[in-house]
């Protein structure tokens, strides 16, 4: 029978040197290498995508991208200024619906309905909604808004994107509220704050960074969706800021222009993809910067 002490070596001297050749250390090195390689695998598609979009999109990008209308087939002059404005408008409508509903629902789930049946089913519903294909969200908005109003519109596009955003905003906000320590709520109650004061002045401000992240995540997801907009916001070749008219958006413009066989339009589609990427990036960075200072 050997003891642990004996297995360390027969020499009476204490030897604490790293044994490079031992099987334990070799295995450790191997696994470290493997994890590093797989981490790179994750980064490769991301960088390849950004690089490719930038390479194809940059030549066409310029100040005129933001000011000119898309050219009709056959012509080459023009860009997608109206689609940028349209995307911003549709996203604003989507946020106007999804943020208040999502944040208030999350507050209900975490602060009032904890453990209740309603909370369970709402959370279940949100999870299902996360998995619903975006085109179904478009169908929903088509049935509820487009058919009711009798026309395609920016407003209906916003409603469709709100359905896409809602579960993301709600679940992320809920997680943000969850990490506010229970002791903080008790501290507030113990100085005589009502539940409303505790939530509105202590809990929600403390969770604000995560709520901002929730909104950003939701916007980023919604910004890239073309499918729900195809039969709600539709498209528009002209400037429009009318909520109740069809409106051009970047994803829909990319979709239409990338499938028509004209060189100029395809280049415009690449440039639009680059702008869309940049837009999402800018929104994320702003949200980070604004909220980074606040910590627990």
């Amino acid at each position: 029978m050997t003891t642990i002490q004996e297995s360390l070596g027969s020499s009476p001297e204490v030897n604490l040197e790293r044994k490079k050749s031992s099987s334990k250390n070799l295995f450790g090195i191997l696994m470290t290498g493997l994890t590093a390689v797989f981490t790179l695998f994750i980064l490769v598609p991301l960088f390849a995508l950004v690089f490719d979009v930038a390479r194809q999109g940059l030549p066409r990008l310029g100040l005129q991208s933001f000011t000119q209308l898309p050219p009709p087939p056959g012509l080459t002059e023009g860009c997608f200024g109206n689609a940028i404005v349209g995307t911003l408008i549709v996203l604003a409508v989507a946020a106007a619906f999804a943020v208040p509903i999502g944040v208030l629902a999350a507050i209900y789930l975490n602060e009032f309905g904890k453990g209740s049946k309603i909370a369970y089913w709402v959370r279940f519903g949100a999870n299902v909604l996360t998995g619903v294909p975006a085109i179904i969200a478009g169908l929903f908005a088509y049935t509820v808004v487009v058919l009711a109003m009798g026309r395609f519109s920016a407003f209906s596009g916003g409603v469709a994107l709100a359905v896409v955003m809602l579960p993301i905003v709600m679940r992320t906000t809920e997680e943000g509220l969850l990490i506010v320590p229970q002791e903080v709520r008790q501290g507030s109650l113990a100085v005589g704050a009502t539940k409303f004061q505790t939530i509105s002045r202590i809990v929600v401000p403390a969770a604000l960074p995560t709520i901002a992240t929730a909104v950003t995540l939701g916007l980023a997801r919604a910004a890239g969706e073309a499918a729900p907009l195809l039969f709600t916001a539709l498209n528009n070749n002209f400037w429009s800021t009318d909520l109740f008219r069809p409106i051009a958006t970047l994803p829909v413009l990319i979709y239409f222009f990338s499938i028509i066989p004209y060189r100029a339009q395809q280049e415009i589609a690449w440039a639009a993809a680059l702008v869309l990427l940049g837009l999402v990036l800018i929104v994320s960075v702003i949200a980070r910067v604004v909220t980074a200072k606040r910590r627990f």
Partner: peptide, 27 residues
Amino acid sequence: VQVRRRIGMVFQRPNPLPKSVYENIAF
């Protein structure tokens, strides 16, 4: 709420509100 305004409580683990020192008192 009226009870707690008259009978305050200090907890086992220090639990300052996630606000400034000033606001902790002023709140």
